[in-house]
Amino acid sequence: MYKRLDEAGTAVTITVDGRQIAARAGDTVAAALIAAGIAHCRTTPVSGAPRAPYCLMGVCFECLVTVDGIGSRQGCLVPVREGMAVETQVGKREAGR
């Protein structure tokens, strides 16, 4: 859906559901997911419908993902870090993670 204007920039590798994704320094988690062409990042706790980042400005909460074991992080506000483990959030969050 998206391409990078410029492939320069410091490469950062994160994992999404265990799969390695090439990101760039300066990406947020949500941007990295979009750049990698990942279709959805969570399913809703209400109907289980798939959702993807929508506003990218911290407002819509559609990009909620699990980051390094902590659920319901706003992917568009979290900068990527080398080795970061991102997981799709499936339905309701599990208490304790």
């Binding site: 339905g91 309701k92 208490a95 304790g96």
Partner: peptide, 10 residues
């Protein structure tokens, strides 16, 4: 009252 996000049943 404080209300949290939806969680799996615990």
């Amino acid at each position: 009252i404080v209300v949290t996000e939806r969680l799996r049943p615990f």
